[in-house]
Write a protein that binds this DNA or RNA. Structure first.
Lengths: 179, 179
DNA sequence: GCCTTTCTGAACCAATCGGTACAGTATTGC
DNA sequence: GCAATACTGTACCGATTGGTTCAGAAAGGC
């Protein structure tokens, strides 16, 4: 998964995978079927893990603090190596949008479920009066995802993590103003 | 360029290019050298054209209206087909960040020059008192680019243009609050 | 200690990749 | 109408792509 994450689907060759996994070619096909099937499983795994982050945070944090928690655990509080890989879902969408509709749709669907998790938390907070109702929960979630996407693109450039920090802070500040 | 734009560098094969360009294989190599060299030229062309959009708008518009003008001419006022291709520079960064450092750097550098164009316009507006000085020109430009990246990722998903419109409007509204 | 399951390593497949070479055909300039 | 330039079509190159097959070695269960 880490290989696919870093290099994308096409640029990751079978020999690359075999060497990293430390298994033989025949074992690979016996266990995982095809390269495409393995990539699909990796996409699902990555998407589910990311969704878990949001849902776990939503259990114990005020919704207004959700975006910061999410950006910290996916951009700020990870190694420089990892932040440079960006988000595997976003990478996949941009690599395969006009090449492989199925994989694109799978990634888009996972992203959509993450956006929904944000929207649900915001919706609940608005009903309990914790959150300003100037914008709908869906609009707020959509804004959070837009900023998230933007940050992931910034991450994947050659930016140092120091240069990334103020971008995250300013984005959060801007989001706060909008909520 | 349109082919590279839509499918990315790796997924665009030489036969694809030849068919679209309507020339023979030997003519291709005689005129453009290698596939990689052509891609470089396309990146430069795309980057320069995008930079032109910002610089031309900056000549006749108030800096506060620059982001809206930019998003209109790159996201809202283009065909559904075209908006689905996203931004070639962003696509390239996400496809090749951990695969081809040189091409990644070229795309990143072009994006940086676009960001600088925004920063210059904002800087001038702050000196003349047109713009709030709560945030530095560089910070504002960085925010605009982050939003821009986010919108491009949204565009490249299977979103209809109708679904994209409110996202752009909300993003602009959020940006306005931050400025 | 034996039998079954698991895995390896290498050979092999057809297809495609980017790139080169070159003879032959259009097209151009004058 | 002739010569120079531009372009085509095809064959070819080595390398690499994802995927298959299978005999043999290693490991595990009891």
């Amino acid at each position: 998964m880490k290989l696919f994450w870093a290099r994308g689907y096409t640029a990751t060759s079978l020999p690359d995978l075999l060497e990293t996994m430390g298994i033989a070619r025949s074992s690979f096909y016996a266990s995982f079927g095809t390269k495409r099937k393995l990539f699909t499983e990796c996409l699902e795994l990555f998407g589910d893990r990311t969704l878990d982050i949001v849902q776990e945070d939503a259990k114990r944090l005020a919704p207004a603090k959700l975006p910061r928690a999410f950006f910290e655990s996916t951009v700020l509080d990870v190694s420089q190596r990892r932040v440079k890989h960006g988000c595997m879902l976003v990478n996949t969408v941009l690599e395969l949008a006009d090449v492989d509709p199925q994989l694109n749709q799978l990634a888009a669907q996972k992203l959509s479920s993450i956006e929904n998790a944000f929207a649900q938390a915001f919706s609940q907070a608005q009903r309990s009066g914790e959150l300003n109702t100037a914008r709908s929960p869906e609009e707020l979630a959509s804004l959070v995802m837009t900023i998230n996407f933007g940050l992931r693109v910034q991450s994947r450039q050659n930016l140092s993590q120091k240069a990334l920090k103020p971008i995250v802070e300013n984005s959060l500040s801007m989001l706060g103003l909008a909520a």
